[in-house]
Design a protein around this nucleic acid. Structure first.
Lengths: 140, 140
DNA sequence: CAGGATCCAGGCAGATACTG
DNA sequence: CAGTATCTGCCTGGATCCTG
């Protein structure tokens, strides 16, 4: 079977077992669900700048509803990525900060952010090209 | 204002402007939406092992519906992260492979996967602890 | 201020059936 | 095999009101 139209540099050859990343039982999934979550990442980035109060986070993040912020910080706390501290002041005051584990994630998130900035333009061009070549495509 | 109950190592102090990551116009968001997507990551990891055909991906990923796989690879193609090659064989044959850009993402994804594996146990314990301390909590 | 409790629309994603 | 098309459940996430 030869390929007529498109040049093909490599045929389906190298099928290395891949370093166990996607084995069901290894479950990077649940962690990725947390990291991949839109709001979680933004909260982590914000907390990377130091402890923040609830309203402070809400104002900083812009677009997040109070409900989503609540859920997000709860989940981060549950996963041991963030620490919630309640100050017994008269108007209740709470702040959130990253734990050791959470802080270790920061580097990855930053790396991701850096990557985004680096390839942002390229991706934008790719999208335009694709969209102009597939005008009727509904894919977002 | 002193804190009575919990020890506090650092009060709300350092508010460094944070390196522009979350500025709305910098929009790491749309990129993160792609990277953060559950299926996208898994497809990227799989493609990191070399070119894959459609069914091959579907079988490898386990749990993904054909619809979701279609949408996912379409989006990756649109973003210039994956390349789709059609072979004019009699039963149509298509394979997907990562582009340069897509491949550059691999390292980050692997880093994320490594991080997951590293902190997996810790997170699991944190969740158990949290859940036992908050039995009535509905947070997943 | 920090969040709990509801109500509700929209979109994501699964199941199914059909095509080239 | 590699998709497209459609129907639909349901879960996410926003808006709103209320409490400690």
């Amino acid at each position: 079977m030869s390929v007529t139209h498109t040049e093909v540099t490599a045929e389906p050859a190298e099928l290395e077992p891949c370093g166990q990343q996607h084995h069901p039982d290894c479950g990077i999934r649940d962690v990725l669900d947390r990291v991949g979550d839109k709001w979680s990442v933004l909260v982590i980035v914000e907390l990377a700048g130091g402890p923040r109060r609830f309203r402070q986070l809400q104002r900083a993040i812009d677009g997040i509803s109070q409900r989503m912020l609540t859920l997000t910080v709860r989940r981060l706390e549950r996963d041991g990525l963030a620490l919630r501290t309640v100050y017994p002041t008269v108007p209740a005051q709470v702040d959130y900060r990253l734990t050791e584990t959470g802080a270790s994630l920061t580097h990855l998130v930053k790396a991701l952010a850096d990557w985004s900035l680096e390839h942002r333009a390229h991706i934008a061009r790719a999208r335009e090209t694709y969209d102009s070549e597939h005008p009727d495509n509904e894919i977002r």
